[in-house]
């Protein structure tokens, strides 16, 4: 096992129980993502894409197999321990931004630090710094309804970055954005990748996926293709 792995799946299976019927979602997936990699996960609906993302994001546990995240075996942790892992090791970016309404950008960004028990002063300082990183420091005191979709997604990305996560996990991050704004957001991901972030993007948009350096394709709960791109698309 490589010490530089951000994510290592070994024989991951996930089976949902629907009454007495067992529905398999992942059928023994092996996957290794190195630190600093930029990976896109693709697949049609029902391919196990969401399940895989939930397991990577420690929102769900595999039925069988081993999952090592940033050197920690998280396969058998209980709910609170998983919450702790999400707090320390993962950053989520959602399609719908999922910001707290009526709460200004800086408070939204600082939310994970609140759950981590960090003092109010330190939260504000770090939230401002992270907002600066995504180019929104001058919007720190705007509420989500005062921000454009692209700006909201930048706030959400800042929130995902504030705890310096081992993996940044984005689920259709441009799904609610127009083409121009999507390009802005994707170039932000490119920039974050360039600074050494490990990024996983789940999408069914080929163009978005081609920002990544590696594309993993799922079908019927199995990895059917794992291609490393020689170079990334220059622009959309």
């Amino acid at each position: 096992m490589s010490n530089s792995s951000a994510i290592r799946f070994t024989g991951i299976r996930k089976t949902y129980k629907n009454g007495s019927l067992e529905v398999p979602a992942l059928n023994g997936v092996d996957l290794n993502v190195e630190r600093g990699e930029y990976v896109a996960i693709m697949g049609p609906s029902g391919s196990g894409k969401s399940t895989m993302m939930n397991i990577i994001g420690c929102l769900d546990r595999a039925t069988a197999g081993t999952y090592v995240l940033d050197g920690n075996d998280v396969s058998h942790l209980d709910d609170n321990a998983l919450a702790e892992i999400r707090l320390r090791k993962l950053g989520f970016v959602f399609q719908g931004f999922n910001l707290l309404a009526r709460t200004d950008a800086i408070k939204n960004v600082a939310l994970p630090l609140f759950y981590a028990g960090i003092s109010s002063k330190e939260r504000t300082r770090r939230a401002l710094a992270t907002l600066d990183e995504v180019g929104l420091s001058e919007r720190a005191h705007h509420k989500p309804n005062e921000l454009s979709g692209g700006q909201q997604q930048r706030v959400a990305i800042a929130r995902a970055l504030i705890n310096d996560p081992a993996v940044l996990l984005a689920d259709e991050p441009t799904g609610n954005l127009d083409t121009k704004t999507s390009a802005d957001i994707m170039s932000l991901f490119d920039k974050l990748h360039a600074t050494g972030r490990t990024i996983i993007v789940v999408t069914h948009d080929e163009e978005i996926a081609h920002h990544a350096a590696r594309i993993i394709r799922l079908r019927d709960g199995l990895i059917v293709a794992d291609e490393t791109l020689p170079h990334k698309a220059e622009a959309l």
């Binding site: 994001g57 709910d79 609170n80 919450a83 989520f92 959602f94 719908g96 994970p112 759950y115 981590a116």
Partner: peptide, 16 residues
């Protein structure tokens, strides 16, 4: 509900 889901994804524990 979604807000609660987001909070949990971000790392809020049950007790919080």
């Amino acid at each position: 509900t979604r807000e609660i889901g987001t909070r949990k994804a971000i790392g809020a524990r049950r007790g919080q």
